[in-house]
Design a protein around this nucleic acid. Structure first.
Lengths: 142, 142
DNA sequence: TGAGCAAATGCAAATGATTCTTATCTAGGT
DNA sequence: ACCTAGATAAGAATCATTTGCATTTGCTCA
């Protein structure tokens, strides 16, 4: 169901944005819908190139970035060496386990509100993105 | 005064940690105490190599990392292409202007408290670091 | 004060993520 | 079937950072 959903989105998107429905794009997108969230480009590339061997990493990079621009993915900088991409578009934050690397989602509805209260320190500044990075040891690794 | 303070720290450190008082380390350390916060390794290297031309970048990288280990600096991942190091050891957060790159400090005393309230989502997990990344347009660039 | 050892340095090469280049290819409209 | 804009593959290029190694240098203790 998620997969159909995403496939629909892709098709709709390709019309909207003038993106072509190339086989590479289809493979990449299906991989994304099968993967867990927070994937790296390389993870996608590994899986995708298994079934589409001539695929180049650059193509995956390009496609993921396009999907971000199109609002299908969110780019995540979780502090590791490589960027991650999140298929969960809801406003949320992340907790990264420094032992096993697992990423957990966190929904913190009142952070934004709290920020507003502290906004005075920023003067006329306009906040565009607010990102909470939490690190620690997850339940399984404790 | 800050410089004397830091020099003391450095000497104390070298005893504690078995770090040697090399001229390179002295130069790097003084540069750090003169620089504004949030410097990159390269910024330090540029200034330091001006007065110690044979200095190698690797030495700066190594020294900054050692200072982090020793608790004299904090490593900052502010999302740019290179890491930054913060000489301000107080608990605080950062706002990065996406126009001019300026970094502003933010003191948000109640974030930690708020997090605790949301901790239930994390189960037995242990939070080691909490880092708020804010991006936007600063007062001057608005 | 000088020998010895661990730590520090410089250099260059390795690494790893990402981007760029360029020639080729192809989807989609006509 | 044909054209053309846009997409692709492949690999070179880039950039920040790390590492291996041979050499040097603080620092300690006799």
């Amino acid at each position: 169901m998620t997969e159909n959903n995403n496939l629909e989105k892709l098709v709709g998107l390709s019309k909207e944005k003038g993106l072509k429905l190339t086989p590479q794009r289809m493979v990449i997108f299906r991989i994304l819908s099968e993967c867990n969230q927070h994937v790296t480009v390389d993870q996608v590339y590994q899986k995708a190139s298994a079934e589409y061997p001539m695929l180049s990493p650059a193509t995956v990079y390009r496609n993921m970035e396009q999907m971000v621009d199109a609002g299908l993915l969110t780019r995540l900088d979780l502090g590791g060496s490589s960027m991650r991409y999140d298929t969960n578009l809801e406003e949320h934050h992340h907790f990264v386990c420094t032992e096993c690397g697992k990423v957990s989602d966190l929904y913190l509805e009142d952070i934004q509100y709290k920020m507003d209260a502290n906004r005075s320190q920023l003067g006329k500044a306009k906040i565009n993105s607010l990102d909470l990075h939490l690190q620690g040891t997850c339940g399984e690794c404790v």
